[in-house]
Design a binder for these strands. Structure first.
Lengths: 218, 218
DNA sequence: AAAATAATTTAGACTCATCTAAACAATTGA
DNA sequence: TCAATTGTTTAGATGAGTCTAAATTATTTT
């Protein structure tokens, strides 16, 4: 079994690793964990002693197979609990993160698997992220950022990259939600903003927004 | 907010306090917490500094109003999660304790109250213990131990005093569950064992069993 | 390629929660 | 009542996880 802190580090390394496709640097991990580089070095050594990561001084850190499995298990629990909170307890998608951050550390295989069953084996969490199954397998999404679409193209909103409450509330306010069809009317060259059509209405979207919305093209 | 360890101490003091109706001794608390007396003294001092307990050297410890409220909140969460595990996730009543011990520390008022609502405001947990409402109020049960009934009396099984897996499994094996009607056919003077009638069948019950089953007389 | 800068690690300290061993206080009983 | 026993507290140490400040290594710049 791993400590709460160890699990959080493994999760953070997993996320950074898939974002940067290489060894994760101490500073990047410190930034992600909201802590100091020296604390990261200490923890990374402990994780290395437990063979959860491969670490060589000054060369960043990578998850071992065991570390990766542990990280995926935590992510599975996090996303299942998010589905529970939204679907069963009536939470909004911008309210679930902190609570799921706590629930993801509950240790009981039976709990996780029964929850999965109770929720009818959901494939994605409320933000469109894939949920690993009990074997740790999950679909790597066939999706692109809205910012990559060109004028005249259409896509369906399938996920968010930033799942901060602020961004999600912005989306709520503009009635943008998963499953919505979006058509690109115009795209400005100088600031990358776009004019989109959704539900028959026109809406202007900044680059900051379009680079945080995942789209499935149709 | 309180730490996991602080919450566990508050809960333990609450349970011992209502059992012994006076200040809780260091050794009793050490026994309940499965730790050493010196560790208890340390923690009790910290709780006292935070005004969660009243403590004077060598005179045991009592919960303050704030400490009592915190303890009740933890107990409320513990029992609500137990209901969730049994009613929604199909756990047996002997499997819920350790998981609920973890879930009871999740901090989110909204979560607790929405869970309560989702479960339709249950009054008792799977072991028959009362669940405090969001104001901390709960019915102090009008119940007696089975061992207190006399020959010829009848009662309904409403709770267990010992909720260890071993005891609960014994009850399962003998088809004793909450709601069952029990009639006392015989009571032995020398060992306090009793012959009971339940579901039309006769069953011999040792004193150890009858002192751990709560009954409502009818 | 040496100097400046940035990234990383080490050293030493802190808090929380625990422990053992020793000291001290309270209770019991001869 | 005073000695023995039991209960409780203190002193000092430990491990996890964190911090600051200083030292070390890597990378960039000139």
């Amino acid at each position: 079994m791993f400590s709460l802190s160890e699990e959080n580090y493994l999760k953070a390394i997993f996320h950074l690793q898939s974002a940067y496709k290489s060894g994760v640097s101490t500073n990047a991990l410190a930034e992600e964990m909201q802590t100091k580089a020296s604390s990261v070095t200490d923890m990374v050594k402990r994780l290395s002693d437990k063979d959860l990561v491969n670490y060589k001084k000054y060369q960043g850190v990578k998850l071992s197979e065991a570390g990766k499995n542990a990280a995926i298990e935590v992510i599975r629990k996090h996303r299942l609990w998010e589905v529970f909170l939204v679907d069963k307890l009536g939470f909004n998608w911008d309210e679930v993160h902190e609570v799921a951050e706590q629930l993801e550390h509950i240790k009981s295989e039976k709990l996780t698997n029964q929850l999965d069953k109770f929720l009818e084996y959901p494939k994605r969490d409320p933000h469109g992220d894939p949920i690993p199954d009990s074997q740790g397998n999950f679909s790597v999404a066939n999706r692109v950022l809205l910012s990559e679409l060109k004028k005249g193209e259409t896509g369906i909103c399938v996920g968010v990259k930033d799942s901060s409450a602020e961004f999600l509330q912005y989306l709520d306010k503009n009635k943008i939600s998963l499953g919505k069809e979006i058509y690109i009317l115009e795209k400005e060259d100088f600031d990358q903003s776009m004019l989109i059509k959704m539900d028959g209405n026109e809406l202007r979207i900044s680059n900051q927004i379009s680079t945080n919305l995942f789209i499935k093209t149709i």
